[in-house]
Amino acid sequence: MSVLEKADSGVAPRAGLVGRVPALAVLEYQLVAYRRTWRAGVFSSFLLPLLTMVGFGIGVGAYVESGVGGVSYLDFIVPGLIASTALQVAVGESTWPVLGSFEWIKVYFAQAASPLRAGDILGGHVAFVLFRVLTSSLAFLLVAALFGALHSPWALTTPLLVLLIGLAVATPVFAYSASVRSDSYLSLLFRFAVIPMSLFAGVFFPVESLPTALRWLAYASPLWHGVDLCRAATLGVAPDWSVPGHLLYLGAWAAGGWLLARACFRRRLVV
């Protein structure tokens, strides 16, 4: 029973990296929990892009013979779908799992009783969400490459772009999920933010086709900026907006979302 004998309990040994970046311990926990379910997810993370690619790119694309702005319909929607996959995964992983960690399994409260701070708990979970965003988008990217839908070496930057999209979307959603007490609010988020964004923020058709008011809504959404960047990367063309502008806009969502989420986490965990 050496664990319980005070005699040989010196100063607790601190593990290198986790000792310095405590959020990594939270990421580690999330990965251990994910290890139980990832196999079920792998199949669908390849199947879904495959089906959308065949259905929209080839099926619908056959009717859009002229393509969009000089590129085939498949090539046009692939980068949009990659960005919107990042959005869907980021939101999905930042809603029920976050609400559940407060309300159902209460794991955040267990973590808050350890030396972790609210920011560590938030940071570790956000890091896990980014990991999920990255792996899902890579699956999509791989399928897209097989369909010959990547046309520029800039396509190699899409993993970084989806991380930025993921961060810009996940952090404000963490704040939202930490502020509501019932999961009916989470469905609202999908109905009134995720679905409209996925449909109207330039994934399936250029936002220029929208009436002016809606077009500005699309411009305001983080997804449109992500779609425009991803499209520029996979097609090797100039984006509609300046690249630094896009990056700054998404960065602002990420930074604002982080501050908001951390405040919400503190309010829930420190009472």
Binding site: A12, P13, R14, A15, V18, G19, P22, A25, V26, E28, Y29, V32, A33, R36, I105, A110, Q111, S114, P115, L116
Partner: peptide, 17 residues
């Protein structure tokens, strides 16, 4: 959802062990 042992080992990591 975690095993009995995983509940302890993941928690220990929060302390930098």
């Amino acid at each position: 959802e975690l095993t009995v042992r995983e509940n302890l080992t993941t928690y220990a990591r929060y302390f930098g062990i």
